[in-house]
């Protein structure tokens, strides 16, 4: 009678549970959700930092897990890995910073032409490494917000098409067709400059 439950219930230690079982337990034992944070916070932070920069990423990461915690009862437990779900929430939270992101991308797209004025208090090397190449930044500016979300989930978060579909709440067919469209746009944008020219590296 308890056969099915044992699939998750017999493993009482959170570190042996998959994300889905952990989230299921966290509905009853909310604190278990902290284990999910332990597992994935660094990864979500990396993604947020790539998109928005170091400081906003800290707030975004915290917010992602708070939101996830609050909606955990609605997690689709047929998915053992919570990462696509977390990335989906991260995408929504990042979207709240859309204007900041646009400014950031815009600024990065002009490195070389003019130097952004906010390098003051950090290592210039590190900041340089955290910048997107100007030509890629320029290409990003040609994409819609939804296209950017999809592209970066696949390219920076390494989600499969299926995972990206899950994260964005769209059918995988939609992901494929959107990717096709955005590839064309990106190709055009990248082709607009000499692809072999090295971007000047300032720092």
């Amino acid at each position: 009678m308890r056969e099915d439950r044992h699939v998750v219930g017999v493993q009482e230690k959170p570190e042996t549970l998959d994300d889905s079982a952990l989230i299921a337990q966290s509905v009853i034992d909310p604190e278990r959700f902290a284990v999910l944070f332990d597992r994935h916070a660094d990864e979500i932070h990396r993604y947020a930092a790539r998109r928005l920069g170091a400081e906003p990423a800290e707030d975004v990461t915290g917010e992602v897990f708070l939101v996830a915690f609050r909606v955990r009862a609605r997690y689709d437990r047929t998915w053992p890995d919570a990462r696509p779900w977390l990335y989906g929430i991260a995408t929504k939270v990042v979207a709240q910073h859309r204007r900041a992101e646009r400014r950031r991308i815009h600024a990065m797209s002009k490195v070389g032409a003019e130097r952004p004025g906010s390098f003051d208090d950090r290592s210039a090397d590190r900041v340089t490494a955290e910048q997107l190449q100007p030509r890629l930044a320029r290409a990003l500016t040609r994409l819609s917000a939804a296209e950017r979300d999809l592209l970066l989930l696949v390219a920076w978060a390494d989600l499969t098409y299926e995972d990206a579909a899950l994260a964005l709440g769209v059918p995988v067919g939609t992901v494929r067709s959107r990717l096709h469209r955005l590839r064309v746009k990106v190709r055009r944008a990248l082709g607009g400059i000499d692809p072999f020219a090295e971007e000047p590296q300032h720092g």
């Binding site: 944070f37 916070a41 660094d42 932070h45 990396r46 993604y47 930092a49 790539r50 170091a54 990423a57 800290e58 990461t61 915290g62 897990f65 590190r126 490494a129 955290e130 910048q131 997107l132 190449q133 890629l136 290409a139 592209l151 970066l152 696949v154 390219a155 920076w156 390494d158 990717l179 955005l182 590839r183 990106v186 190709r187 990248l190």
Partner: peptide, 23 residues
């Protein structure tokens, strides 16, 4: 095109321990 973006992904700064603990 996607590979280009993947290869060109910016470095991510480490998640500061303090901020992580706070979150």
């Amino acid at each position: 095109e996607i590979r280009t973006f993947a290869d060109g992904r910016p470095a991510a700064p480490p998640y500061p321990a303090e901020a992580r603990a706070k979150a």
